[in-house]
Design a binder for these strands. Structure first.
Length: 431
RNA sequence: GCCCACGUCGUCUAGUCCGGUCCAGGAUAGGGGACUGUCACUCCCCUGACCCGGGUUCAAAUCCCGGCGUGGGCGCCA
């Protein structure tokens, strides 16, 4: 927190965490840190008041302090200027020793960092991840706004699992059992049936799956979009592609400071992104000695390897994997009319990791009904959903992206938990 | 849910294979002291740990069993 004009001789106020005291005897350098960065305050034994010097000696690292003083230009100071204090006040004293190394001299394990997330976030490199995520959110909102999408907010408390195998979290809902939503997908589609044409939403989704991997979370932030009057899934692919290009270009321009801190560079990806059908992917992978059963989804190794293959061939970090087999598709996916064993469902891989799934939805009531039966589902269980299709619904499709995975891949983080403030994993519920 | 690995000062680690050398070593943080241009300040001194429970053994940080926790792989992932 800085107030005043930071020019020679001006009186300014700086409030922040005391990062370090470099005590040289007659000269003390105090490094303050606020959300903008670091500021150096210099105390001179000859000129500073004795009680200030004593106070500094008794102030622990990471205490919150307020300094009022004069700006003095000095080439030897890290910012080219430093502050000669008139007053030094401790607003909140930090206990010692600190439970984690905030200064970053030892590399603390992620799990311990997460136990003390508020201290961990004081490290500028950690804060930078979330500043970038904030800016990414801004870019995404801007993109949808400019492209005529209405932002919606759907309920995260639902009466039943959508379908499929994903586990849900049951909750008490008065006298009934309800569940935390795994996806806003049905509600997005409801808005298409309602005539909204283009909608999007950003919000939490919940997965009660006991994964122990660097890319899964029990709660994550999903960016969802749904569009009416599409020709097929390629229209959705185009929008997702534009969204990624817009967002990455925005970050390249607007997050230079944070990216520099993390020593990362973002290049605006070229369009169109490479696209391969699942059928092509099987053959690319088998050519590289990776065996994926024909007609099944790729496993994590297959995705990584395909990412590498695309990088080698096209120099591109993104690839759309299209036309998923009906065998692994959901009942509501639109099948290709001429080849019903394949569907208008696609994934977007970013550096070999799935960051988006999208599809054209089946909007023909009778077809949807028969597909549900084919998948062994009881239409009674999601009647509210099927009703959307009985009273006129535009052909439509949409997709969902995980914001944490985007940030993870963008910044080459080793674990998606680094891209969430408060990760929820099977074992972690605190903080 | 299954499989593998790991768990040592506040933090990060060495030591575990092959039990005794370890009342556990180092770095950083913390406490004390010296130092007028630090910017990973430097130098000296000090404090501080074997995840929990059981077992084997003359002897366990070290070997075995169980639990808990962590990391990862698989399954699964609308």
């Amino acid at each position: 927190m800085r107030e005043g004009i930071f020019e020679e001789g001006q009186r300014v106020t700086v409030q922040g965490h005391l990062e370090e005291i470099r005590d040289l005897g007659g000269l003390k350098f105090v490094i303050l840190r606020d959300i903008k960065g670091r500021v150096q305050v210099v105390f001179n034994k000859k000129t500073a008041a004795q009680e200030l010097l004593g106070l500094i000696d008794s102030t622990s690292r990471e205490s919150v302090v307020r300094v009022v003083g004069r700006v003095k230009k000095d080439a030897r100071a890290p910012l080219g200027f430093e502050i000669e204090p008139e007053s030094f006040e401790v607003l909140s004293k930090a206990e010692t020793p600190l439970p984690i190394d905030v200064a970053g001299k030892t590399e603390t394990n992620l799990d311990t960092r997460l136990d003390w997330r508020f201290l961990d976030l004081r490290r500028p490199e950690v804060a930078a991840v979330f500043k970038i995520q904030s800016k990414l959110g801004k870019a995404i909102r801007e993109f949808f706004d400019k492209n005529g999408f209405y932002e919606i907010h759907t309920s995260k408390i639902v009466s039943q699992a959508t379908e499929g195998g994903a586990n849900v979290f049951p909750i008490f809902y008065f006298k009934r059992t309800a569940y935390l939503a795994q996806s806003p997908q049905f509600y997005k589609q409801m808005m298409i049936a309602a005539g909204f044409e283009k909608v999007w939403e950003i919000g939490p989704v919940f997965r009660a799956e006991p994964h122990h991997t660097p890319r899964h979370l029990c709660e994550y932030t999903s960016i969802d979009l749904e569009m009416g009057y599409i020709k097929n899934h390629l229209d959705v692919i185009d929008v997702v592609e534009e969204l990624m290009v817009y967002s990455l270009d925005y970050l390249r321009r607007e997050a230079q400071e944070e990216l520099g801190l993390l020593q990362k560079e973002i290049k605006t990806p070229s369009r169109p992104f490479p696209r391969v059908t699942m059928r092509e992917a099987y053959s690319i992978l088998s050519g590289r000695g990776i065996n994926v059963e024909y007609g099944l989804d790729l496993d994590p190794t297959g995705e990584r390897e395909l990412g590498l293959a695309i990088k080698e061939k096209f120099g591109h970090d993104f690839v759309f994997l299209t036309e998923f087999p009906w065998r692994v598709a959901q009942f509501y996916h639109m099948r290709k009319s001429e080849e019903p064993e394949w569907t208008n469902r696609a994934d977007l891989l970013f550096k070999g990791l799935e960051i988006c799934t999208l599809a054209q939805r089946e909007h023909r009531y009778d077809v949807l009904l028969s597909q549900a039966k084919e998948k062994g589902l009881n239409p009674k269980d999601f009647e509210f959903y099927l009703n959307f299709f009985r009273y006129g619904v535009p052909p439509h499709g949409g997709g969902a992206l995980g914001i944490e995975r985007i940030v993870m891949q963008l910044l080459d983080l080793k674990n998606v938990r680094e891209a969430v403030l408060l990760p929820r994993t099977p074992e972690r519920l605190v903080p």
